[in-house]
C-alpha cells in the first residue's frame, strides 16, 4: 500500500506489523471480545462494499441471469458482456479519456511545480494572497463559467475537441496541485537548495536535479489525484463533446434508459470504465488522504 513512498515513515500506521514509534501500542482486546469486533468489522466492511461486489459479479453474467427475482448468485461466468462492450466502440472513448487525463496531468505538473516552488522555497511577497486565490477558484461553481466557455469554444470551433477538455481539466486541477506540491516543497530541507544556488544552479537545474528526486513520491501523489479527478469528470465532457472527443463517462450515458436486457452489459461497461482508477487508487491509498485534503492531512 505504501508502494510509492517506501522511504516515508508510516506515521499513519498503514503498516500492520509493528506499532509506530512514539505511539503507545493500542490496547489489544484479547479473546472473544476482540474476535467478535473483528468479525463485526469485516461484516460491516463487506456489507458497505457489497453493491460494488454485486456490480462486478453481474458483469460476468448472461443478460437473462442479471435481472432476476430472487437475484442469481450461482452461474457460469462469461466474458461475453465485456467483448460486447468492446464491440460497441468503447475504445475511442477510452482513448479520449486517456489523452485528457494524461495530457492535463502533465500540464498541471509543468505549471504547478514552478508555481509551488515560488510559494514555498523562495516565496513571493504575497504568498498568502496567491494561495487564497488558487483555492478560491475551487469554490467557483462550474455552472457559473460553463456558458461563456461553451460560447467561446463554439466561436473558436473547438467544441468536440479533446484538447478543450485538456485545458479545462488543467485549470480544474491546478489549484489542488499547487497546494499539494507546496506542502511537499516545504518538507525539502532549505540547506540543500541554498547549497545548489551557491554553486550557481538556476531554477530549472534546481528543480530537475535537486528537488525532483526528493519530491518524487509527492509528485506521484499529486499526479494520482489529478488523474482521478480528470478521469471521473463528467460535466464538461458531456456538454462540450459529441461524437469525436467524448470520454468514458459519456459512453456510460448510453445506459440511462432501460430498454430490453442490458444490466449485465451495463455492469461490464461500468467495471471497465472504473477499473483503471480503482486500481491506481488502491495502490496509492496513503497518498490519497494527503491529496484529498490538498496536503493538509498526512
Amino acid at each position: 500500500m505504501t508502494a510509492h513512498a517506501p522511504e516515508r515513515p508510516a506515521a499513519g500506521g498503514s503498516a500492520p506489523t509493528a506499532p509506530a514509534p512514539g505511539r503507545a501500542p493500542r490496547r489489544r482486546r484479547s479473546g472473544a471480545g476482540g474476535a467478535a469486533l473483528t468479525v463485526l468489522t469485516w461484516a460491516i466492511g463487506l456489507a458497505f462494499v457489497s453493491p460494488a461486489l454485486w456490480l462486478l459479479l453481474t458483469a460476468f453474467k448472461q443478460e437473462n441471469q442479471a435481472a432476476t427475482d430472487p437475484p442469481t448468485l450461482l452461474f457460469q461466468p462469461t466474458l461475453d458482456r465485456f467483448s460486447a462492450v468492446l464491440g460497441a466502440d468503447f475504445l475511442p472513448y477510452l482513448g479520449n479519456s486517456l489523452t485528457a487525463t494524461v495530457a492535463s496531468t502533465v500540464l498541471v505538473l509543468l505549471l504547478g511545480l514552478p508555481a509551488a516552488y515560488a510559494l514555498s522555497v523562495e516565496p513571493v511577497k504575497r504568498t498568502q494572497d496567491v494561495l487564497f486565490f488558487f483555492i478560491s477558484t475551487k469554490m467557483l461553481p462550474v455552472v457559473a463559467v460553463v456558458v461563456p466557455i461553451y460560447v467561446a469554444a463554439a466561436e473558436l470551433s473547438v467544441l468536440d475537441n479533446v484538447w478543450t477538455l485538456v485545458v479545462l481539466y488543467t485549470a480544474m486541477n491546478l489549484p489542488i496541485a499547487v497546494w499539494m506540491l507546496r506542502s511537499f516543497f516545504l518538507e525539502v530541507p532549505v540547506a540543500i537548495v541554498e547549497a545548489a544556488r551557491v554553486e550557481g544552479a538556476g531554477l530549472p537545474r534546481i528543480l530537475w536535479s535537486v528537488m525532483l528526486p526528493i519530491m518524487a513520491p509527492g509528485i506521484a501523489a499529486t499526479a494520482l489525484i489529478c488523474m482521478i479527478f480528470s478521469w471521473n469528470e463528467f460535466f464538461f465532457a458531456v456538454n462540450l463533446t459529441a461524437s469525436q472527443a467524448a470520454t468514458v463517462p459519456v459512453f456510460l450515458t448510453g445506459f440511462i434508459t432501460s430498454e430490453g436486457l442490458f444490466v449485465a452489459q451495463l455492469s461490464a461497461a461500468a467495471v471497465m470504465a472504473s477499473l483503471p482508477i480503482v486500481v491506481v487508487g488502491w495502490i496509492a491509498q496513503r497518498q490519497l488522504v494527503r491529496g484529498l485534503s490538498m496536503g493538509a492531512v498526512k
Partner: peptide, 16 residues
C-alpha cells in the same frame, strides 16, 4: 474494500 466506492467512476455509481 471500503475506499473502493470513492474510486468508482461517479457516473458508474449512479447507474449501479
Amino acid at each position: 474494500l471500503i475506499i473502493t466506492p470513492f474510486l468508482i467512476l461517479p457516473v458508474a455509481t449512479a447507474l449501479l
